[in-house]
């Protein structure tokens, strides 16, 4: 693989899982994708000629022969960015390159029992978890929370799974009623994994903490899909360049489009790889990586999700 261009592939099939959810199979034109550990995400690059997007998605499955990867994408609101493009225009034949595959949400293999709690599209890493857990004879359970209108879609998605290990909960009411009880019933050795929207994950974490889970037993992948915002300017102190970050692009994308070699890995505010020094201006932090002290100091920021509160930022780039 060439790290700059990644694994070349094309979309080979698309199916509609629910009105807002599509499943894409991305296949290599030649050769295979590397083996993949459960919980991995890939950075997928695609575009329409005018624009290239690079989005991270959990890999739901890798085919036995390694030729194909499967992802599930939710139509993004607001309608900016890659997910919306894929949802609308991602059809068979579209070129997609997979720039890198990493895992920020691995299974704790020393755990004796694993309990997974997901909401909505947050199910995706757990689909790959369960394939492995079944194969390795691990002890596990999944509780999936969904809005009622998508419940059938998720039930269908989970139908190949062992019914004694997965449960689909519909709607808010049931969530509030069930979560505390089912967490409290777990043996103390259980590891808890959470994936879903930010508010949901926070609620599960807090509930788990109140029934006595140690913080080291609670695992989550705190991916953020970067939201747009006000237009701002960045001045790059070292190269002397000035760049405008548009309302519907991220700072990282603007840097890349300007030909700056900016570091990144998860593109979702989860890993810290894209950290840069801020020399002037007030960053609008939107990540889950920086400590409170770093945030307050205002002299570092993560370019993949964070923006600016001041009209201009000067960066150490």
């Amino acid at each position: 693989m060439n790290p700059a261009t990644g694994y070349a592939a094309t979309i080979s099939s698309v199916d509609v899982v629910a009105p807002a959810l599509r499943r894409f199979v991305v296949s290599r034109t030649k050769g295979a994708f590397p083996a993949i550990s459960p919980g991995s995400h890939g950075v997928f690059a695609f575009g329409n000629g005018q624009r290239t997007w690079k989005n991270a998605y959990s890999i739901v499955n890798r085919s036995e022969d390694g030729r194909a990867l499967e992802i599930i994408v939710r139509r993004a609101e607001p309608t900016r960015g890659g997910s919306d493009f894929l949802y609308r225009h991602g059809g068979p034949g579209l070129n997609v390159s997979v720039l890198g595959i990493s895992n920020l949400f691995p299974i704790v293999r020393t755990g004796r029992r694993h309990i997974m709690i997901s909401a909505g599209i947050g199910i995706t890493p757990f689909l790959s978890y369960m394939t492995e857990m079944r194969k390795d004879g691990m002890d596990y359970a999944l509780h999936h929370y969904t809005r009622p209108e998508e419940a059938d879609a998720f039930r269908a998605m989970l139908s190949p799974c062992d019914p004694s290990r997965v449960r689909v909960h519909e709607g808010r009411q049931e969530a509030v009623a069930s979560l505390r009880m089912l967490l409290a019933r777990e043996p103390v050795a259980s590891h808890l994994y959470v994936c879903g929207p930010g508010g949901f994950m926070e609620w599960v974490r807090q509930t788990a903490a109140t029934v006595g889970y140690a913080a080291t037993k609670i695992h989550s992948e705190r991916f953020i899909s970067p939201a747009g915002g006000r237009v701002f300017e960045v001045m790059l102190a070292r190269s002397g360049k000035t760049i405008t970050v548009g309302a519907d692009e991220t700072l990282l994308e603007a840097l890349e489009n300007a030909g700056i070699d900016a570091p990144c890995l998860c593109r979702g505010g989860a890993c810290g790889m894209c950290r840069v020094g801020v020399i002037n201006g007030r960053p609008d932090h939107r990540d889950h990586v920086l400590t409170g002290a770093e945030r307050d100091s205002g002299d570092v920021m993560l370019t993949c999700v964070s923006r600016s509160l001041s009209p201009t930022l000067t960066l150490d780039l």
């Binding site: 693989m1 790290p3 590397p34 890198g100 595959i101 990493s102 810290g272 790889m273």
Partner: peptide, 11 residues
């Protein structure tokens, strides 16, 4: 350690 936690396959 921070660097290695981010180490990527193929690199």
């Amino acid at each position: 350690l921070r660097f290695l936690l981010m180490l990527q396959h193929g690199r």
